[in-house]
Design a protein around this nucleic acid. Structure first.
Lengths: 218, 218
DNA sequence: TTAAAAATTTAGATTAATCTAAATTTTTAA
DNA sequence: TTAAAAATTTAGATTAATCTAAATTTTTAA
């Protein structure tokens, strides 16, 4: 098995490559792992030796097939634990990230498979992010940013692009949580703010910045 | 917070001192932590600096009040997770130790308090060991070894002194699980083996060694 | 096309946890 | 009471992960 630290690097590379396995830079990894570039270089050598990444000096890094597998498994664990925390223990969707960050490193395949069943094999975590199954297969729903909708268009909130507690609490306050049906009533020309009707009754105005981070299914 | 390693030493010292805070030797700690005595000495110095233990060179070690608190909290977490694994995820009582060994280091007070409530504030783990409440208070039931019972005496199995999978599976096979009511029908003079009736109907014979590790409430 | 800036790597150190072998202290048993 | 055995500690090394400062490579922008 891999160390906690190795797992965190794999996860960082996975997320930075945007699930597309695009090339990731040393500096970007340093930023999300809260380390310095020099430390990242050391670790990249180690991960390359273990064949978890494809690494060419000065040219950035991609995950190998084994690396992707490992990363997806960590993501699976993280998201299942988030579902557990919200559905079973009653945490709010903005409170679970840090705890799941620890739980995702617990090492037991049977634990995770049983947890998956216990939770009813959920398709998505509390933020709408898809949960891969035990083989690592994702079902990606086609999601659109609210900022890309036109006046009159309708959608159901199904995900977010920003996971900070601050942002999630804001959405909560506005009643714009997962499953909410919205219709765009107006797009303000001045600054791109968007007026919408949530659940057919609630009028809300959100900034373009907020709109960019809310995802709907059409 | 303390590192995983520090937590494991505190837990080891706690268990070795038999919950009585008796003096614990360097070698005994080395044995249960799978390290060498020299490594233990190094760590003891560190824990003493942090005021988690009372340590006199060559004289062994006891936990300080802070150390006891920390150790009891780890025990609480371990046992609550074991209940979760058995009650909610359907693991057998002999399968949960290693996973709980990892989960006990997850660091979130609100997680554990919520888990406690979710599980219905259980008084004991799947092996009958008492679970301290959030203040660290234990309710110790008065338990007696089956090997200390006399012919004709009756009791309810409420704990075990041995947690190995091998032993627990053996008890399972014999039907001698927690909650089973037993009556001693005969004590064999030759080797101290004990014959008993479980749940009023099942005749069983167990070795003295097995009997020593089964605990009953009278 | 090339000099300056930015990104990355290397060199050499540090910290936590561990080890072996040698030294020291305590315990045991004659 | 004391020599041998057992337990413990010290000294000096090692591994994983990190760091700063210097060196190298790549990218950018005139």
């Amino acid at each position: 098995m891999h160390s906690f630290t190795e797992e965190n690097y794999l996860k960082a590379i996975y997320h930075l490559s945007d699930a597309n396995n695009t090339v990731v830079s040393t500096n970007s990894i340093a930023e999300v792992t809260n380390t310095k570039a020099a430390s990242v270089t050391d670790m990249l050598k180690k991960l390359a030796d273990k064949k978890l990444i494809n690494y060419i000096k000065y040219q950035g890094v991609t995950l190998s097939n084994t690396g992707i597998q490992a990363a997806v498994n960590i993501v699976r664990k993280h998201r299942l634990w988030e579902v557990f925390l919200v559905e079973k223990l009653g945490f709010k969707w903005d409170e679970v990230h840090d705890i799941a960050e620890e739980l995702e490193h617990i090492n037991s395949a049977s634990l995770i498979d049983r947890l998956d069943d216990f939770l009813g094999n959920p398709a998505a975590d509390p933020h709408g992010d898809p949960i891969p199954d035990r083989t690592g297969t994702f079902v990606h729903k086609k999601l659109v940013k609210v900022s890309d909708l036109k006046e009159g268009q309708t959608g159901t909130i199904s995900g977010v692009n920003e996971h900070s507690s601050l942002f999630l609490k804001h959405l909560e306050k506005l009643g714009l949580t997962l499953g909410t049906k919205i219709t765009i009533s107006d797009i303000i020309e001045f600054d791109g703010s968007i007026m919408l009707i949530a659940d057919k009754t609630k009028e809300r105005t959100i900034s373009r910045e907020v709109a960019k981070n809310i995802l709907v299914i059409l």
